[in-house]
């Protein structure tokens, strides 16, 4: 564990909490892509199946459980409790165009051709593009509530901080994982346009 990794995890946790609080406090999930949230639930489920097979640390296990619970909690709020506020007319990104290539790619490019490893690889690929329905929704409606922007900023920062973590680990521990690094860079690049708007609007806006 290094400071970049810790900050990345905190940022990830913060994003999930911001989203849950936003939905809970406003009793509405307007402006949030249910499709992205479903993809994230698939990502966490596929990746954290190793909860049953390998123990790394209490921190690791607890965080995994928190991410899973928060993700399914968000889906419950969006699709059941506050269903009426779900803006499905604007949430039209075809997620099969993301899922199928990720399935194929994880079967072709992985560290080991075993079920759990392929699921882990699939989750890494899918996570890198899972935000696209949300970004598509924001661009379609032309605006995002500021709280939604904070959510996106925290979520994007998490993988950007992980890149620093991977650079650190490469030099400090000679540890690297090509699949995670490349997918993480792709993921971060997808946020760049949003980061630019968030920062310039934050500084020069209002």
């Amino acid at each position: 564990m290094n400071v970049f990794r810790l900050l990345g995890d905190i940022s990830h946790l913060l994003a999930i909490i911001i989203l849950l609080l936003k939905i809970w406090k406003t009793r509405s999930c307007a402006g949030i892509s249910g499709r992205s949230q479903v993809l994230f639930a698939v990502v966490y489920t596929a990746r954290y199946l190793d909860l049953f097979t390998s123990y790394i640390s209490a921190y690791n296990s607890i965080m995994k459980l928190v991410f899973l619970a928060a993700s399914y909690g968000t889906i419950y709020l969006m699709f059941i409790k506050f269903k009426a506020s779900y803006d499905h007319n604007h949430d039209t990104f075809r997620i099969e165009f993301l899922i199928l290539p990720c399935v194929l790619l994880s079967l072709l490019i992985n560290h080991e051709f075993s079920p759990l490893e392929i699921l882990w690889t699939f989750s890494i690929y899918l996570e890198s593009v899972a935000i696209l329905p949300q970004l598509f929704m924001v661009s379609k409606t032309g605006e995002a509530e500021s709280i939604t922007s904070h959510y996106l900023f925290a979520l994007g920062s998490y993988r950007a901080l992980y890149i620093l973590n991977w650079i650190y680990r490469y030099y400090a521990e000679s540890h690297y994982d090509v699949i995670a690094i490349v997918a993480g860079i792709v993921q971060t690049v997808l946020y760049c346009d949003f980061f630019y708007l968030y920062i310039t609007k934050g500084i020069y806006g209002q």
């Binding site: 990794r5 990830h12 990746r47 190793d50 390998s54 790394i56 690791n60 560290h111 080991e112 994982d177």
Partner: peptide
């Protein structure tokens, strides 16, 4: 490709 090892990140 390097062999699979435990994924210790989240």
């Amino acid at each position: 490709d390097e062999p699979a090892e435990e994924h210790d990140e989240l």
